[in-house]
Structures are given as C-alpha cells and as structure tokens.
Simulated assay, not measured.
Amino acid sequence: MKQASRFMPKYEPKKASKPVVFAFFAIAVAIVIYQPWYLLVIAGIALVVIVWSAIDQPNVERHFQNLCKERSGSSICEFAREFDSKVVDTWIIRAVYEQLQAALPTKQSVPIKASDGLFDTLMLDEDDLDLELIEEIAQRTGRSVEGYESNPYYGKVTTAGNLVLFFNHQARANAT
C-alpha cells in the first residue's frame, strides 16, 4: 500500500556546485571591471522593478485577502475532493496544492481550487511555472518531466486542476 501523501517529503532545492557559483561571480566581476556602464543599466532595471513591486503589492495582497474571505474554511480537503482519488495520485494532488501555495506572490495561506487560473486568479508568472514549480512538483511526486510533449495536457495547463492532471499523466521517474 502506498504511503499517505501527508508523509511525502518536502521539496529540497538542489545546491549549485561550487564551480558554477565561482564562474557566475567571476563573470559578474569581469563585467563590472570591463563594462562598468552595465552596472548602471542593471541597477536602473533593479530600481524600476523594486519601485513597481512596492506600488503593485498592496493590490496583490488585497486580491488574495478577498480570495481568503470568499473561501473561508476551505482547505486541501476541498481541493482533493475535486479529483477522483482512484484515478489521480494523491501525492500529486498534495504536491500541486502545497507548491502552488508556496509560489503565490503573498505570505497568506490561500485556499486553492482546481478551477483557479494559474496566471489570472493565482497571479503566477509563466516563468515561475516553467522554471521552478514544475521541477518542485516532479521532485516531490517522483514523476519525470521527460516526454512532456506527448502528455495530453501539454500546452493546456492554465488551471490548478490541469496541473494536477498533467502530472498524473507523466511517467514515474527512474530511481537512480
């Protein structure tokens, strides 16, 4: 019998190897020394991003406060009931729910529904989905991301429910 999903291990980020970190800092130092005007461009871009975030964050927090009020009393249980547990792996349901909550641009614990749009309702960035969230869910569920192009949900992952179903159709990763 498979272990209950509540005992699933948490996501553990891979540590960058020392040569990669050293190479990154060496390149950054070389840019600052040989092209100091790049530093001004990077600082300018960083300043714009910081100011924009400070202006927009109260709207984001208000959006998630309203979601929390609407969904008062909801939890992962309601999310899990939206799937047939005889067909959908409960580990995938839990991993998607928990990793989506961790990826939200708020500190609030927002109850998630399967119908929630990843980009409109949950306000996630497509790059976060592609670069981080997929890797985190794959690691926690033991699913491979290889061969994702043949997945029937490839290119259709716009809701939390579709993300669950996408991973449910992925093969298990080979244990190495």
Rank of each mutant, 00 (worst) to 15 (best):
V49M: 01
V49D: 01
I134E: 14
G155L: 03
K2D: 13
K69M: 10
E136K: 15
I92S: 13
K14W: 11
N174W: 01
N66E: 14
K107P: 00
Q108K: 11
D130E: 15
Q99L: 06
L118A: 09
Y34N: 09
A138L: 06
V60W: 02
I50Q: 04
I33G: 00
K113S: 13
L163F: 11
V21Q: 07
Q3L: 12
P9W: 03
P19C: 04
P19H: 08
C77A: 15
F79I: 10
S5E: 10
V88H: 10
I112T: 06
L100K: 05
I93K: 04
I137P: 00
L163D: 06
L39Y: 13
T106C: 05
T106M: 03
I93A: 07
P105V: 05
I137C: 00
C68S: 13
F119H: 07
I76M: 07
R62F: 02
G155T: 03
E132D: 15
S53C: 06
N66S: 13
H169D: 14
R172T: 11
A114Y: 09
V41T: 03
V96D: 06
V29L: 12
F79N: 13
S72Y: 03
D89A: 13
E82H: 03
H63L: 04
W91V: 00
K69E: 13
T159S: 15
T141D: 01
V60A: 00
H169K: 15
V20P: 00
Q3D: 02
Y11V: 06
V60G: 00
Q99F: 06
K113F: 02
V96H: 10
Y11K: 03
V49H: 01
H63S: 08
A95E: 06
A28S: 12
F24W: 07
G147V: 06
K113N: 10
S72T: 08
Y38N: 10
D120L: 07
V20G: 02
M123C: 12
C68E: 05
C77K: 14
Q101V: 09
N151F: 07
Q108E: 13
E146Y: 07
Y34Q: 03
G142E: 07
G155C: 05
L67T: 04
E98A: 10
Q65Y: 04
S74Y: 09
Y11P: 02
F7I: 02
Q35E: 05
Y153D: 01
P36W: 08
A95D: 09
Y154C: 12
I55L: 14
A30F: 12
I92D: 09
D116T: 08
Y34R: 02
A171S: 15
R143K: 13
F119Q: 05
A43C: 10
K14C: 05
A43E: 03
Y34L: 12
Y153M: 06
M123H: 12
A43W: 03
R140Y: 02
V48F: 10
A175R: 09
F22D: 07
Q101E: 14
L163Q: 09
I134S: 14
H169E: 15
P9A: 10
F119C: 11
E70R: 11
E78R: 08
S53T: 14
I50R: 12
A28Q: 15
V88L: 04
R81T: 11
L67N: 02
C68W: 00
V110W: 07
V145Q: 02
Q170H: 00
A4N: 04
T176M: 05
Y154M: 04
R94I: 01
Q170L: 11
E132M: 13
R62L: 05
V87A: 01
K107G: 01
A160L: 14
